[in-house]
Design a binder for these strands. Sequence first.
DNA 1: CGATGTCGTTAGCCAAGCTCATTAGCTAGG
DNA 2: CCTAGCTAATGAGCTTGGCTAACGACATCG
Lengths: 144, 144
Amino acid sequence: MAERVGAERLAIALRDAITRLNRRVRQERPVGDLTFSQLSALTSLQLAGALTPRELADVERVQPPTMTKIVGKLEDRGLVARTPHPTDRRQVILAATERGRAVFAQFEKARNEWLARQLDELSSEDRDTLERAAQILQQVARAE
Amino acid sequence: MAERVGAERLAIALRDAITRLNRRVRQERPVGDLTFSQLSALTSLQLAGALTPRELADVERVQPPTMTKIVGKLEDRGLVARTPHPTDRRQVILAATERGRAVFAQFEKARNEWLARQLDELSSEDRDTLERAAQILQQVARAE
DNA sequence: CGATGTCGTTAGCCAAGCTCATTAGCTAGG
DNA sequence: CCTAGCTAATGAGCTTGGCTAACGACATCG
């Protein structure tokens, strides 16, 4: 039971930290920019190479119509292209364009700059802690 | 320089983890609910006792008009009350109502339940790591 | 062939964030 | 003491991002 109480307290602290950090990072936008969600989708797409909208929605943990919107924005900017699925004509294949890959690298860097600068000022113990925490959190986020 | 590269890699991993976890936690809504932002504002208000809209906006890291909206929703639900500032008539004092405090405790619990359950299943080493990470992250988020 | 299911999208809603502008009230300098 | 300029809160209006419901096109299985 002590375990349980600890987990709840930790949950509150973590959620608080994450909410605030999320808002903080979100504030740092490179000019001419992509939004957070767009960047995240573009990232997933590049890591995977190519995905259908549904797959991308699942990876990003949003509903398909939401992903339709986000991909639409990326397509408007010429960063992502839709191509038909070779065998199943219901499906669509999404992939980053040449320009998408270029723009991505550039914005991603700027996007992370503020956070990286902050992290740079921490002790290496703290960075190690965050390193492990990031892995744990990614695992938790992936849980059903 | 190795430091710098490490910080950038860590920034990417952390941001990714935070984005996904944030979305994941956001999905878990108690019925009849408050949104994430509303809950967060209510929490800050209770922790502080009472704040002006600007102070609350600063704490929550949003712009004043955004906070006006959020507080408006909370006021509609009778969870927060505005009272005039004793000396400066431009200002307003915000505080949680009796009902606000009650509703808060109930929803907060439900809100954290999923996350607490996940954390409960981690090893105690992992929980310790997250404990420290949460503190570090809160500090980083507070940085200018 | 027909029923049922799946994929993507459209339509329409609401929340959350922003900027710009406005109103009210405070405060300091002449 | 009064006016010029600052600050507080809000309002108006926009964009994004999330959702559900519903639909059309296609696939698949009996």
